[in-house]
Every structure is written in structure tokens, then in C-alpha cells.
């Protein structure tokens, strides 16, 4: 097995996002997300006055932060982070206090009524571990999302982040978000 260090992240070219929501449904199917809850979604920011108008779409989900506040506040350690950066909830330890939901600057978590625990984007770790890409990335028609390993210097992420201007959202929270939005 390859024991090279990995750091998974997503680069998002949100200019290409057309709000088709394929990613949202793919995630629902892949992860059995209940009706009314979402692990990923698309924000639409509409501005201007007729006829000078604009709409900006930005896909959102867990940012799999470097220093995730959700993991920090969890009283039982149920919220945890893998070495490769993926932030997960170990359901057996989750008592359902929902403190992590308040602590997430992106509102990326939801309470699963049936299990009484908190669920969130897993970056499709079950797929990633098989060498596949997350369901949202795979299905995206306009290829807004690029999944990859930041530790791979030859990887697509490095190339994009080196050549394109980008931002992260709410860096002031100190969470170190790992969803990179291209400008």
C-alpha cells in the first residue's frame, strides 16, 4: 500500500456552475440523505436592477477544514478528522447534542432524525478509498468540481491553485477551509 501522505480537497470553479443541482441529487442517492436535508447545496446570489442584473451560484458543502471547529467542540470525539483531511462523524459516539452544527461556519451539517445523530458530507470517503471521486464531482455536468490530493505536486489541484486566482470562504473563523473557489 501507498503510505504517502494525502490531503484531499475540492477546487470549485463556481463560474461554471449553472445551478443544475445534479451534485445535490447524486449526493442524496449516494449517501441516503433524507428528504429536507442536504449535504451539499447551491447558493444563488441575485443582484441588480433590470436590465443590469447578475446571478452568482456557489456550490456549498462541508469544507473539510484544516482546523475544523466542529471537531473541536464535539464533547465525545464523535466528530473527527482523518489524516487525509476528511472530516467525519463516528455515529456510535454521537450523542446528538448538535453542538457541532452550531460550530460549523458553513451550516454544512444536519441532524438525522431517525438515527438521532448528526450527518454531514463525507467527501464520499467510501468511494475515495476505492480510488473513485465523490459522487457530486463525478456527476457534475459542467465540471465545476475538481477533486484531488493537495499533497500530490503533479496533481490537478496544484496546477489549478498555482495558475488560477482563488479564495476560501470565511477564513476569519480560523477553520482553514479546504474548498477552494476559483475566481
Amino acid at each position: 500500500m501507498d503510505i504517502r501522505k494525502r490531503r484531499y480537497a475540492l477546487v470549485i470553479d463556481s463560474r461554471k456552475c449553472i445551478n443544475c443541482k445534479a451534485c445535490v441529487v447524486a449526493c442524496k442517492a449516494e449517501n441516503g440523505v433524507p428528504t429536507g436535508n442536504f449535504r451539499n447545496w447551491i447558493n444563488a446570489d441575485r443582484q441588480g436592477e433590470y436590465p443590469k442584473l447578475r446571478i452568482d451560484f456557489t456550490p456549498e458543502q462541508c469544507h473539510h477544514c484544516e482546523h475544523p471547529s466542529c471537531v473541536r467542540v464535539c464533547p465525545t470525539g464523535a466528530s473527527w478528522q482523518r489524516k487525509d483531511g476528511i472530516v467525519l462523524v463516528y455515529e456510535d459516539d454521537c450523542i446528538g447534542c448538535r453542538y457541532c452544527m452550531l460550530a460549523c461556519p458553513y451550516d454544512a451539517r444536519y441532524f438525522h432524525e431517525e438515527s438521532g445523530t448528526v450527518h454531514k458530507c463525507t467527501l464520499c470517503n467510501h468511494r475515495v478509498d476505492k480510488g473513485e471521486v465523490p459522487a457530486c464531482v463525478e456527476t457534475c455536468p459542467s465540471k465545476v468540481r475538481v477533486f484531488g490530493d493537495l499533497e500530490d505536486p503533479a496533481g490537478r489541484l496544484h496546477e489549478l491553485l498555482a495558475t488560477r486566482r482563488h479564495i476560501v470562504k470565511e477564513p476569519q473563523t480560523g477553520n482553514g477551509p479546504q474548498l477552494y473557489y476559483l475566481l
Binding site: 445534479a22 441529487v25 463525478e138
Partner: peptide, 25 residues
């Protein structure tokens, strides 16, 4: 049927499924 994944071999679907395609389940 648990999931529908895009089939990359079809040039006309460009390795994607849209929201509807995913929701066919």
C-alpha cells in the same frame, strides 16, 4: 437500484448525469 453513476463511454453524456438523471431512482 441504489445509485446511478454517469457512464463515461458515451460522448453524448459527457460523463455526467443531471439532477433528473440522478433522481430516476
Amino acid at each position: 437500484v441504489k445509485k446511478l453513476n454517469p457512464n463515461p463511454e458515451n460522448p453524448k453524456s459527457r460523463d455526467m448525469l443531471c439532477a433528473r438523471g440522478n433522481a430516476a431512482i
